[in-house]
Simulated scan of single mutants.
Amino acid sequence: MATLKGLTQWECLLLNLGCWQGSFTRLSPQGELREDIKSETILEGLDSNKTIQQTIRQFYPDRTQEKVLTYSSLGRNILLFENGAFSQGSIQLGFQSEFGAEFGLIDRTRRLRLVQLFNKEGNLDSLTLIREHLPESNIPERPPLKLESLLGHWQGEAITIYPDWRSEIYPTASTWSQQDRQVSMTLRMGSDPSIPAITSIATIHDSNPNILNFEPSLMSGDLSIQTLFLPDGSSSTSPTHLKLGQPFRLAASWLVQPDLHQRVIRSYNAKGEWIGLTFVAEQKIT
């Protein structure tokens, strides 16, 4: 099995073992609350961790819904990092078919997951934010993410894993700035100074300060890209509408600490094929 800094993909999955207690918060694409259901997700290793049993319980006011899954191998639609972060989802954007992805990030005894779902017309249809903790956790939930927390200069490292399990690691640097309702995010990935940094310009939504609407760019083409700030220091970034012929990226982020920002990015090419998964961890320097 392919390795990632000495860990197999299965060993990376084992970092998610535990009884994760929290809730499934279902939201509209604009962040409006649709439903909040208390939950418990148990991942336990069987047969010396060669098999994993996943039990998902959702506690509705009038009933408990339970689903049990058992598996001993990983599908082609999921990749994991050595800290337990992962993403699974659609590997191909198709015509008149639903499309979606789940992202997961872990910080010691807390875990954050985000599910982005698109309907058959390609429109962003719903988001589910899953905030979880182990029973012994004493780490409090983070405040809802605000733009002010991202402003400044950040530096860090990214690792990209490809579906054939090749991987590469490279430095990153980003800068967030704001002038009135306009927000600028400049990103440099890699150490080659000849590769220009990419600057994306966004406007704060007229009636919702938790939404950034990005202008068309080299990275997004003519797709409308939205970042939505969410509870527990998290955010969701994606096109509001998908279409073939234009590469796109889906992402979830987590401000783990005031000076530590993590992102998982799922990339697709113009044919709608999943081509890679990237984990970025950046420290705030100014």
Rank of each mutant, 00 (worst) to 15 (best):
G276P: 00
Q116G: 01
I78A: 13
S137M: 05
F24T: 01
S174Q: 13
L74R: 08
N49E: 02
W274Q: 03
I52H: 02
L79R: 14
T128A: 05
L134V: 08
P231I: 09
L150V: 06
I169H: 03
T286F: 09
D180Q: 13
I285C: 07
W154I: 08
E44N: 03
L46T: 00
L7H: 11
L15D: 07
L244K: 11
I159G: 00
S194Y: 07
L242S: 04
L212I: 10
Q92R: 14
A85L: 03
R108F: 11
R181L: 12
S238C: 06
S200K: 08
S72R: 12
L124M: 07
V280R: 03
W274D: 03
C19Q: 14
R76N: 15
S207R: 13
L223P: 00
K38T: 07
L80Q: 05
V68E: 11
G245Q: 05
L33T: 12
K38V: 03
R57T: 05
S267A: 14
S217N: 05
G45I: 00
H153R: 13
T3K: 04
L242R: 05
I139N: 06
R166K: 13
G272M: 01
S90E: 10
L33Q: 14
E11R: 01
T227C: 06
S224D: 10
G156W: 03
T172A: 10
P258S: 11
G31F: 03
S97C: 09
P239V: 07
N269P: 02
P29V: 08
I56C: 09
D125L: 13
A85H: 04
G89T: 06
H153V: 12
P231A: 09
L255N: 02
F279E: 11
L151V: 09
K67R: 15
F214E: 06
E273R: 10
Q178W: 03
G22C: 04
Q21H: 04
R34L: 15
P61H: 08
N138V: 15
R76W: 09
N208W: 09
R188T: 14
S235A: 15
N138D: 13
L4T: 02
F95H: 12
S48T: 07
Q262R: 12
P196N: 05
L129C: 01
S184G: 05
A251T: 06
T128D: 06
D232Y: 07
Q54I: 14
Q30W: 08
E157G: 06
P61A: 07
N208G: 12
L46S: 00
S236N: 10
G245P: 04
K284D: 03
S126R: 13
F229W: 08
P247F: 06
I204S: 07
P247K: 04
A281C: 10
D232W: 04
L255I: 08
V280Y: 01
P258V: 04
G152E: 01
D192S: 11
L260N: 03
A2V: 05
G75Q: 12
L69D: 15
K67T: 15
F118N: 04
I285T: 15
S191D: 15
E40D: 08
K5N: 14
I211H: 02
L74W: 10
I169E: 15
L147F: 04
W254A: 01
N119Q: 11
F248W: 01
P216A: 09
L134I: 05
P29N: 05
V280F: 02
